[in-house]
Amino acid sequence: MRTLVLTNFKLRRNLREKLSTFWMKCCYVLVLAMPFVLLTGLLIKSSLLFGEKSLTELIFSSEWKPMSGKFGFLPFIISSLWVTFISVIIAAPICLLTAIYLTQYARRVVLKIMQPVIDILAGIPSVIYGVWGIIIIVPFVSKVAGWFNVHSSGYSILAGAVVLAVMIIPFILNILIEVYRTIPIELSEASLSLGATKWETIKKVLTRKAFPGIISSFGLGVSRAFGETIAVLMVVGNVVHIPTGVFQAGYPLPALIANNYGEMLSIPMYDSALMLAALILFIMVTIFNMGSRYIIIHYEKKI
């Protein structure tokens, strides 16, 4: 009797072990397969378009007339690039200076206050950023445009970039704080003992050491900014043209997808075109993402 209970117990434990390990392996396979599934899904759907036009024609043409089957992605790609790079240019110095301040100069209290601020900023949904953009940033940009004697409704590339900059600040800042924290303290001690001032140490020793990390944090910021949809869509104006100034309206790729999903089944090839936009987005973001991570990994190995 006793042995029976024991073997039963053993069997049950073994079974549980096997079952849970099996499920874990399923989850593991799911995650590994996911990027490829995403890629193939979008590729299959958008490949219908390739039958008629070459990829270069699609990307470098600026004519967007879905009704007559003309899909030129250039205006959208250019708009995306404008918004993304301006936002990173705004966010980068703020993040860098704040990260240096928080890790080198500030008292612990300041960091304790800033940590929840960064967390909350990171957690605010993008639609809320969009509403904020409409309430505050858009009128402000319109006013700024007035100073330059440019007439603008405020719904512009610049408004999109400012909103986006605030959205990616917590993301970049968290990485930068981590980068500055992991620099060994001996490095700055050695520099200080040689008579360098604190600022010189930060500028010439720490920042040089952190340089790959800084670059990759900006790269990750670019990849985050590139795919941001709703907030940008709400403030950027959405006019199909190649923008030539920051006060003009733009029409980034994610906004294109989000705005037209309703009609995409009623016009032939339109859904393929939108899936191609999603594919371009996916590839661009992944390249920036992987590139930045490669820099971090490569640089960590060197130390």
Partner: peptide
């Protein structure tokens, strides 16, 4: 892979 997936914009998941 997880970091890569985290970086994929939600609109791509939506599409």
């Amino acid at each position: 892979f997880l970091d890569l997936l985290w970086g994929v914009p939600s609109i791509v998941y939506g599409a």
